[in-house]
Design a protein around this nucleic acid. Structure first.
Lengths: 218, 218
DNA sequence: GTCTATATGTTGATAGAC
DNA sequence: GTCTATCAACATATAGAC
């Protein structure tokens, strides 16, 4: 019989990633670097050391592979955010709300995945916000709808004087800051998570208070 | 002889745009909607009612067409910003600095171009920030380098207590907000320029002050 | 200047062997 | 499950007529 012992090729991993996960890891990297249209199935499967047909067998097509990549990271991340938002009191401080919203994404921004490094995951999420709407919209609702709703509610409790329009501005500017940070434009220079988080929280909290004042001053 | 009088096809325009400008307009729209990789020369030239070869004749290739699109809008916009920043006093208020930085992009976000509507220009600029670095970096330096430098200097005068790291955070978060706004996620809902501008200025000013405090509190 | 026609490569997806 | 081989459609770019 074949006596080839399955040699562990990398001593740091305690289990060799199967093809499906190698494909997910590779797709994550390539989609992050080049965007949806710029990433070809060939470049992805080549990076994974596999073939186009294997990817199509496991995922069914390019678009399905893309959404699988996003889902794998974003689903657990958003569960953590939901838990943090649910843990807030009835009248939370602004900084508490923003921290609940920002912490999980920031912490995961350079985390090592179960199988391989995935420091590029951040780019994928950041790019989600500039992909074509017809491709991204349904997925954004599915992945972020619940978090956005709870974030909105928590902000409304933290800023009881703020109207709907003001709350929307506050939320959108929080998203803007987060997306920009995750895309690496800010804090790529080896910033530790704690510093980055406190910068984001302080900036968003003060900005939100200013918008509430602005609204009242009219 | 051919008696076909060149009928003016659109009474609102007082001069018919030539092929080159029709191509720029079309490219602006298609690049904005689909990004660089998602936009094909065929779809662009078809939108312009022209042909691929005409585009290559005028611009030399896809990448050159793309940078021509960006340059056409961004060069005058950034000149306006430079003039506004140069007009600041030696010790400007934070809100003055941010307004000088934000006003021109906001005002141009839905302006009608010389030849045709170009409400999509905003998306092109927003997308510039997620295009592949090797494609976008040189152009970003060329188009935004000067503005960024003057913005940095003005911020340093407005926040004399802020260190370099803090100033960088302030700048990056201003860019983040602006890009997000221009991409249409915020303020797409018929916001007038004045409201949007004051929201951005108020948010950025308060956020910047908070970051300066945060730095000192350490 | 602008077109049609074409050259040459790449794409996403699938068929079928193993 | 995973591969190789192949498909039709698409990409960018160019040659050459007018």
């Amino acid at each position: 019989m074949s006596q080839a012992v399955p040699i562990r090729q990398d001593a740091r991993d305690d289990c060799a990633p199967d093809t499906k996960n190698r494909l997910l890891d590779a797709a994550e990297r390539v989609f992050a670097e080049r965007g949806y249209d710029g990433a070809s199935m060939r470049s992805i499967t080549q990076t994974a050391g596999s073939s186009v047909s294997a990817a199509n067998y496991h995922f069914g097509g390019k678009e399905a592979l893309w959404s699988a990549v996003l889902r794998r990271r974003l689903a657990p991340m958003n569960e953590a955010r939901l838990a943090a938002l649910a843990g807030l009191g009835p009248r939370p401080a602004p900084a508490e709300v923003f921290e609940a919203y920002f912490r999980a994404p920031i912490e995961r921004r350079s985390r090592v995945g179960t199988a391989s490094h995935s420091s590029f995951q951040r780019h994928v999420m950041a790019r989600l916000y500039t992909e074509a709407p017809e491709r991204a919209h349904a997925l954004k609702v599915e992945l972020f709808g619940e978090v956005s709703a709870r974030f909105h509610e928590a902000l409304a409790r933290a800023f009881p004087a703020a109207g709907e329009a003001t709350l929307l501005h506050i939320e959108q500017l929080a998203v803007a800051a987060l997306v920009h940070v995750l895309s690496g434009e800010l804090g790529a220079a080896g910033k530790d998570d704690g510093t980055l988080l406190s910068v984001l929280v302080a900036h968003a909290s003060a900005g939100a208070a200013a918008l509430t004042d602005l609204q009242e001053g009219r």
